[in-house]
Design a protein around this nucleic acid. Structure first.
Length: 930
RNA sequence: GCCCAGAUGGUGAAACCGGUAGACACGCGGGACUUAAAAUCCCGUGACCGAUGAGGUCGUGCGGGUUCAAGUCCCGCUCUGGGUACCA
C-alpha cells in the first residue's frame, strides 16, 4: 500500500480553512477568553528555520485545544521587524531595509501557513510599520512626560511635578530621580530659566537624556554591541574599540525595581526564570556611608551590604573611572594611576567581572579617615570595582570579601579578622551567621544584629544610613543606527521637546547611505531637512526592545487609528494567558515588557500590571555545525581524523553538503568559488590513516542555529518530504518542550509511519470506510485512557508524551482491527490539534460541513479508567523480584495480610526473617529481610 | 567569573508525589508476505554472568549522604547549553 498523499490532504485542508476563515477571532463572545501568544520573531533573511516552529507548534496545539474546549482564543502573530541584520544587509547592498524586511516577512508568513499555525493574520503587527511605531513613539512620549512618585508608587504626568516645583521646589519630594539631583526651592525653580528648568526636569523624566558608557569604534564611527566586540576590537573589520561617555536617551526602569520584583509573585512563570529576573534586579540591603578624605576637602561615598564589618576595613577601592580619582591622586602617584586608568579603560565590564584571577590596581596616594577609629586608610583604584554599580566605590574588608582578600594579598595590604571562626591566612569569610569580633561596640553580636546596630551608629553619627540598592540599571535607549523607530524629540535651543502627538508618526527619513556621517553622527543625521519647525530632530533611533515591549497589546486592537489599543479591548483580552518563547529573553525583553506594561497601567492606559500571566520557555533547537580543516596558507583540506598532523584552521561548512559527518566533495567544490580548486587529504574510515580513496570526515559542534554558522535547516524541506503534520508531530516528539536539543532527523520516519497507520485506520485500499458497529469495552477503554492522557499532557505542556500516547492508542486499535466510527471520530478530534491537516481531511471525509477547528473536544468518561486490581511489584530489600495481583485500593492492614499470604511471597520468605513489611496501596510491596 | 538550566541504552527519550528504570520511537538482528524489492505485519534488542534456559549481578555524568526504597531528596564536583545590560 502506498503512503498517504499528504500534499493533497494538506492543500485541501488549507483551502477549507482559508475559505471559511476559521481562525478569525472576534473581540466579543459569550465564551471565556484565552490569549495564547508566541514571542514574535525577527524576520531574518534565512527564513524560518526548524528551531522556530518548536514553540509555535506547541502554542498552536494549545490554541486549537482551547478552541475545541469552548474558549474564545486570541492567537496572533507579528514581526519584530527592526534590527541590525537588515541594516547590515542594507549597508552592503544599498537596498532599503524596509524592502528586504517586507520580503522576509512574506516568506515567514508563507512558511507559517505551511506548518498549519492557526494565527488570525488580520491582527498581524510589524514593529517597522509606521502605523505601529507611531504608538511606540507615543508611549515613548508618555514616558518622557512622566515622573515616578515614590509616595503613591506610580508614574504620574510631568505637569503635576511642575505644579509641585512651582510651589515647593523639590523639597520634601519623594520621587525617583538621578543620584545627584540638586535641591531647589520654589524661587530656585522660577528663576532657573527655560534651560535650567528643562535640566531639572530631566532628572525626573522616565525617558531622559544622560551620559552613558558605550563601546565607541572610531573607525566605524559608531557604537557597538558587546557581542560585536571581540577582544577589544570590532568583530567587523577588527578596528579598535574604546569605552566612551556619550549623551544617550535612557529609560528609568530602576524606578520600577521593587515593583518588578514584587510582581513576580503574582505570575506563573518557572522558578528558574523568576530567579533570573530577581538576580538581574539584584536587590541588596545595606548601608550608604561617607568617609572623610584626609585632605579634609572631599568625601567618599560607598555602598556596603556588610556595614557590620566596618572595623575590618583596611583600604578603599574606587572604580578607575570614579569622578574623584583625578582630584585626590597625589602627584607622586599620578603617573601610575594614569597608566592604570588607560589600561583599565578599554576593558569591557564583562571582562572585568569575569577575570578574577589577575589582580590589578593602583594606589592613589590619598587616605580616608576611618569614621570610628580615626585611622588613616589608603585609597586604591582597581577595575574589579565597576563604575555603574552602587557608588563606584567600596570599603574593602579583606577578612570578609573574597575579592578584597585577593587584592589585599596581592598588594600586601593589612587583613583584619572581624568574623568569628575565620582563618584570614587562607581566605575571606563572608558568613552572615557568625559573630562579629575585634569590632568595638559590635563585638559578640551575630552579623544580622550587628548590621542593624552598625547602621544605627552611622545614622547617629550622621555619616551614613540604611539603604536598599538594586543592581538593575537604567537602560540605554538610544541606538546609533538607522533601522529603528526615530525618537520623536526635537531640540529648540538645545532643549529637548516632544513632537506633538498629532504629528506622529515621525517617519524614518530617506538617507543616502545607512552609515554614520564622517564626523560620527548617526545615520539619521544624513537625512535632508531632518527638522521640526526648523529645529533639529534627534538622530538616534530606538532599540529592538522598544517595539517588542508592547506588541501583545496591539494585537488586541491592531487597526486602531486613535489610540494604541482601545481600553475596552485591552480590558476584554486582558493578560496573556500563555506566553511561549525562548529563555534567552529572560532578562531582556521579558523585563522591559513588564516595565512598559506597569507604566501603562500607572498612567491608566490599561487595566493590568503584569502582561504575561503564564510563561513557558521552549528549549532552543540548536544546529549541528560541521567543520572542515584547511591547512594554513593552502587550499588543502584535511579530514578530521588526520588534522592533528597539520597546522589547520576550522571552517564552518554548509550542513546541507555533509551527510552523516561525511563531506560531499563535489558539492563542496561548487559551494563557493574559492573552493573550486580545493584539494583533500582523505582518511580510511576504519584505520584512520591517509587513504587515496578514503572519506572526508567533518567534525561537528552543537551551536545556535544561525545563517553565519551554516547549520540552518529549513522546515520547507521537511514538509516537502514528509508533510507538515509529520513536521509538527516530530518536533513535539523530539523531547520535552523546555529542553534544548540539537536538530536531528534520525527519528522522523517513526512519526511519518504513525500518520500512515492513522490513515489506514480510516481507509481500506485508500478508500475511506468506517464501520457503524457499537464499540466494545476494550475499545472504549483505549479511547478514554488516551483522552485522559492527551488532556493531561497538554495541561503539562508535555507534548512529547502526548505523541507517544497517540502511538500506543493507534497500535492497540490496529491490533483490535477497530474501524468503528464510534471510536475513530472522537480519536481524530483528539489528534487534530497535533495533526490538523490530516484531522481536517478525515473530518470532511466523515461528511461534516464545519471545520474540525470548531469541533468539540472529546470528553473523557471516568468509568473506563478505573481498575480494581493492580500488579504490585514485590521487592526484597528494595530489589524488584516479581509482581503479584492484589486489589488496587483498600485497607493497608488487609493488603498486608493478602500480600503475606501470597504463595510467591511465602516462597521468598522461606528461611528468612521478615524484619519489616512495607505496603503502599496502589504502589508497592517491600519485604525487608535480614 | 557570576546567574539559570541540563546530563538516563547505539540514538531521541519515558518514569507526573521517593515506589517495577528504559514506555513510545529511531537504529540494528531475525521471521512472514513477495519471483524480487519497497511498503506492511510479527518477534527480539541496557551491560555482564549463566547454556541460547531458569536465575542472578551491575546500571540513570562523577564522589559522598538520607531512606524499607533514590534517575527523583541533600552535600561536593565535572562537562554541556542559555544569559551577562547595543544580537534578537
Amino acid at each position: 500500500m502506498a503512503d498517504y498523499q499528504f500534499t493533497k490532504v494538506e492543500a485541501e485542508a488549507r483551502q477549507k480553512w482559508s475559505e471559511q476563515q476559521v481562525y478569525k477571532t472576534s473581540d466579543q463572545s459569550s465564551k471565556p477568553k484565552y490569549y495564547v501568544l508566541d514571542m514574535f520573531p525577527y524576520p531574518s533573511g534565512a527564513g524560518l528555520h526548524v528551531g522556530h516552529p518548536l514553540g509555535y507548534i506547541a502554542s498552536d496545539i494549545v490554541s486549537r485545544f482551547k478552541r475545541m474546549k469552548g474558549f474564545n482564543v486570541l492567537h496572533p502573530m507579528g514581526f519584530d521587524a527592526f534590527g541590525l541584520p537588515a541594516e547590515q544587509y542594507a549597508i552592503q547592498t544599498g537596498q532599503h531595509p524596509a524592502v528586504t524586511t517586507e520580503q522576509n516577512i512574506l516568506r515567514y508568513v508563507e512558511q507559517m501557513n505551511h506548518i498549519g499555525l492557526s494565527y488570525d493574520w488580520d491582527r498581524k503587527v510589524e514593529t517597522s510599520d509606521p502605523d505601529y511605531y507611531r504608538w511606540t513613539q507615543w508611549i515613548f512620549l508618555q514616558l518622557f512626560d512622566s515622573w515616578y512618585d515614590k509616595n503613591t508608587d506610580t508614574a504620574r504626568p510631568l505637569s503635576e511635578l511642575i505644579a509641585y516645583f512651582e510651589k515647593n521646589g523639590n523639597r520634601q519630594l519623594h520621587a525617583h530621580c538621578d543620584e545627584h539631583t540638586p535641591a531647589f526651592d520654589a524661587s530656585g525653580w522660577q528663576n532657573a530659566g527655560a534651560q535650567g528648568q528643562a535640566d531639572l526636569l530631566m532628572h525626573y523624566r522616565l525617558a531622559y537624556l544622560a551620559e552613558a558608557r558605550v563601546n565607541w569604534c572610531p573607525a566605524l564611527g559608531t557604537v557597538l554591541a558587546n557581542d560585536e566586540v571581540k577582544d577589544g576590537v570590532s568583530e567587523r573589520g577588527g578596528y579598535p574599540v574604546e569605552i566612551r561617555m556619550m549623551r544617550q536617551w535612557m529609560m528609568r526602569i530602576s524606578a520600577y525595581s521593587q515593583r518588578l520584583l514584587d510582581g513576580l509573585n503574582e505570575i506563573d512563570w518557572s522558578d528558574a526564570l523568576k530567579e533570573q529576573q530577581r538576580n538581574w534586579i539584584g536587590r541588596s540591603e545595606g548601608a550608604l556611608l561617607r568617609f572623610e578624605l584626609a585632605d579634609g576637602k572631599n568625601q567618599l561615598e560607598v555602598f556596603t551590604t556588610r556595614p557590620d564589618t566596618i572595623f575590618g576595613v583596611t583600604f578603599m577601592v574606587l572604580a578607575p573611572e570614579h569622578a574623584l580619582v583625578p582630584e585626590i591622586t597625589t602627584p607622586e602617584q599620578q603617573a601610575e594611576v594614569e597608566a592604570y586608568i588607560t589600561k583599565a579603560k578599554n576593558r569591557s565590564e564583562r571582562e572585568r567581572m569575569a577575570d578574577v584571577k589577575t589582580v590589578s590596581g593602583a594606589f592613589t596616594g590619598a587616605y580616608v579617615k576611618h569614621p570610628f577609629t580615626g585611622k588613616l586608610i589608603q585609597v586604591w583604584i582597581a577595575d574589579y570595582v565597576l563604575a555603574g554599580y552602587g557608588t563606584g566605590a567600596v570599603m574593602a574588608v579583606p577578612g570578609g570579601d573574597e575579592r578584597d582578600w585577593r587584592f589585599a594579598r596581592h598588594y600586601k595590604l593589612n587583613i583584619l579578622d572581624v568574623i568569628e571562626g575565620s582563618d584570614i591566612e587562607t581566605g575571606a569569610n563572608d558568613s552572615k551567621d557568625a559573630r562579629i569580633i575585634n569590632s568595638d561596640f559590635l563585638n559578640g553580636l551575630p552579623a544580622k544584629a550587628a548590621i542593624r546596630k552598625a547602621i544605627e551608629a552611622m545614622e547617629a553619627k550622621g555619616i551614613g544610613k540604611g539603604r536598599i540598592q538594586f543592581r538593575l540599571r537604567d537602560a540605554i535607549f538610544s541606538r546609533q543606527r538607522y533601522w529603528g523607530e526615530p525618537v520623536p524629540i526635537y531640540f529648540e535651543n538645545g532643549i529637548p521637546k516632544a513632537i506633538p502627538e498629532d504629528q506622529l508618526p515621525l517617519r524614518l527619513p530617506a538617507v543616502d547611505k545607512y552609515l554614520p556621517t564622517e564626523d560620527g553622527e548617526p545615520p539619521l543625521a544624513r537625512a535632508q531637512n531632518w527638522q521640526f519647525n526648523g529645529h533639529p530632530i534627534e538622530t538616534t533611533t530606538m532599540p529592538g526592545w522598544a517595539g517588542s515591549s508592547w506588541y501583545f497589546l496591539r494585537y488586541m486592537d491592531p487597526e486602531n487609528k486613535t489610540t494604541f489599543a482601545d481600553r475596552s479591548k485591552t480590558d476584554y483580552w486582558n493578560q496573556v494567558d500563555l506566553y511561549l518563547g525562548g529563555s534567552e529573553h529572560a532578562t531582556g525583553h521579558l523585563l522591559y515588557a513588564r516595565f512598559w506594561n506597569h507604566f501603562l497601567f500607572d498612567r491608566g492606559f490599561i487595566g493590568f500590571k503584569e502582561p504575561f500571566k503564564k510563561l513557558v520557555n521552549q528549549g532552543m533547537i540548536q544546529g549541528k555545525s560541521n567543520f572542515v580543516f584547511r591547512i594554513e596558507g593552502t587550499n588543502t583540506f584535511v579530514s578530521a581524523g588526520l588534522k592533528s598532523q597539520y597546522k589547520t584552521s576550522a571552517l564552518h561548512v554548509d550542513v546541507n553538503i555533509v551527510h552523516q559527518e561525511i563531506l560531499d566533495l563535489t558539492a563542496f567544490k561548487s559551494w563557493r568559488d574559492e573552493y573550486s580548486g580545493a584539494e583533500f587529504i582523505l582518511e580510511d574510515p576504519t584505520t584512520g590513516t591517509i587513504a587515496e580513496n578514503g572519506i572526508y570526515r567533518c567534525e561537528t559542534e552543537v551551536e545556535k542555529m544561525s545563517k553565519s554558522k551554516w547549520n540552518v535547516v529549513n522546515p520547507d524541506d521537511i514538509i516537502a518530504q514528509y508533510g507538515a503534520d509529520t513536521l509538527r508531530l516530530y518536533e513535539m516528539f523530539l523531547g520535552p518542550l523546555e529542553d534544548a536539543k540539537p536538530w536531528d532527523t534520525h527519528g522522523i520516519e517513526g512519526v511519518y509511519r504513525f500518520l500512515n497507520k492513522v490513515w489506514r485506520l480510516y481507509h481500506q485500499d485508500d478508500v475511506f470506510s468506517l464501520s457503524q458497529e457499537t464499540a466494545t469495552e476494550a475499545e472504549l477503554k483505549i479511547l478514554h485512557r488516551t483522552i485522559r492522557k492527551i488532556e493531561d499532557g497538554i495541561d503539562r505542556y508535555s507534548f512529547n508524551t502526548c505523541v507517544s500516547a497517540f502511538m500506543i492508542c493507534v497500535n492497540e486499535l490496529q491490533s483490535l482491527k477497530c474501524r468503528k466510527q464510534a471510536i475513530l471520530e472522537p480519536f481524530i478530534c483528539l489528534l487534530s490539534p497535533f495533526a490538523p491537516f490530516l484531522g481536517e481531511y478525515i473530518w470532511q471525509a466523515m461528511g461534516h460541513n464545519n471545520s474540525i477547528v470548531h469541533a468539540p473536544f472529546p470528553i473523557c468518561d471516568e468509568q473506563y479508567l478505573t481498575d480494581d486490581t493492580y500488579d504490585y511489584p514485590v521487592q526484597e530489600n528494595g530489589k524488584m523480584r516479581f509482581t503479584i495481583t492484589l486489589p488496587k485500593q483498600g485497607d493497608k492492614v488487609a493488603l498486608e495480610q493478602l500480600a503475606l499470604s501470597h504463595e510467591k511471597v511465602q516462597q521468598l520468605l522461606q528461611g528468612k526473617a521478615l524484619k519489616k513489611l512495607v505496603v503502599v496501596p496502589g504502589r508497592i510491596v517491600n519485604l525487608v529481610v535480614s
